[in-house]
Design a binder for these strands. Sequence first.
DNA 1: CAATACATTTCGCTC
DNA 2: GAGCGAAGTGTATTG
Lengths: 256, 256
Amino acid sequence: MTVTSVHDPSHREALWELEDAFERGDLVSLFGRCTVAYEGRAASDLGAGDRLLVLKPDGAALVHTDEGRQPVNWQPPGSEHHAAVREGRLRVRSTRNSPDETLTVRFSDVHQLSAMAVTGGRDLTLHGSEEDLRTRILERPDLVEQGFEPRETERPSSAGPMDIFGADADGTPVVVELKRRRVGPDAVGQLARYVRALREELGIEDPAEGGEAGPKRTDSPDVRGILVAPSVTDRAAERLADRGFDHVALDPTPEE
Amino acid sequence: MTVTSVHDPSHREALWELEDAFERGDLVSLFGRCTVAYEGRAASDLGAGDRLLVLKPDGAALVHTDEGRQPVNWQPPGSEHHAAVREGRLRVRSTRNSPDETLTVRFSDVHQLSAMAVTGGRDLTLHGSEEDLRTRILERPDLVEQGFEPRETERPSSAGPMDIFGADADGTPVVVELKRRRVGPDAVGQLARYVRALREELGIEDPAEGGEAGPKRTDSPDVRGILVAPSVTDRAAERLADRGFDHVALDPTPEE
DNA sequence: CAATACATTTCGCTC
DNA sequence: GAGCGAAGTGTATTG
């Protein structure tokens, strides 16, 4: 529970505190005026300004301005922090390999530096995820459709694992794709890949080919695709119709 | 440049400092032992532990543990921060509407609170984005293919805007999809949507239909699809081949 | 406001 | 490590 805190330190003082904090494995919060340079997957430069630098013992580094949920610059976990005084400025550098990337923060002024050992309590319980939606359906398959019978989750296919594989009341194979929120055309493409893969696997001809123009065919065994999501965009609905797939409106958690 | 900083404040003191900081529009950094509850697009609970809470004047709130680039909990910009002392604890709550969401952080102990006015210097210059890749191609179209001629960027279609629309040496229409890094099957699906939309628009029959089995047809005007990306996954390459599309290996920035 | 696609996405899981 | 897909994704842009 030891918190280190220095106000308007000299660069030397800040350097000592930083090195001690790295040594102890502390979480560091540093206010100051700085420039930021990044080079790696991309490259960026940020002119002088007041910012908050957060340094984590796992190697993550975050540069925050007064706006936005996202840091303006950062370095992912697994990096290594190094501090030094160069050309009269405090330089904090985080580096990692594969991919090679470097974040360099140069402080002309350090206003405030705090560091604390942070332990325990990372056990977040989250509700309303796609997994919750799956659980809900497995407990009550009729929410998808009368007579729907789930057979397998994460069923492998040549196009990747499908969320739920099952059969409808007629025994026709059904691929169910789950989304926890409103979806666009990309989700339909995903479902289409799984359905296509399953058709191929089962030796079922694609109904879009075969006939010369008929957009749908119902007179032969087929594979059905069902997209379960709270709602879909217009373009997604079009593409669902094109493919002959169904949409079932369902939330990950029952609405109150 | 005024930095406020209090060490091990009482809840009352912390509350005053927080309210002043909100008033001034400061960026706040707060170390302490807390529980976190979120309710909105999903719902989550986090047990007691030491964490760093960052509060921004634009309404963003970030709860950081000692690990990860991502905050363990957060609230997006546009929220409103409120602080109070309830049941012997300092409660910080950030709320926003549409969607309705609330983040509640309850501190049993506040170890360190700092706040600073943070201004200016949000002008980040970034290189290596998809836009850089586009610029590079427009300056040297032959990087895509000998004789390639770009005609339009962000060309509208019923499936959305395509990155580059142009023509090859034979005058055949070409849709180019750009990706700044290695891509999977999703990017092929995106390209396919644009090509399909353009074929429909130009009244060109899809070569996959029409013939009974021939996977490709080269004896009639068609629309070509080219995926420009540093590299593609195997599955993406398969799907490219299925569709008769090409891949051109190109980075957003020239490699040194 | 909805819709769409990019992002230094990050993250977790499987192979 | 690569590949694949989810995420309370965030973010900008366009209609």
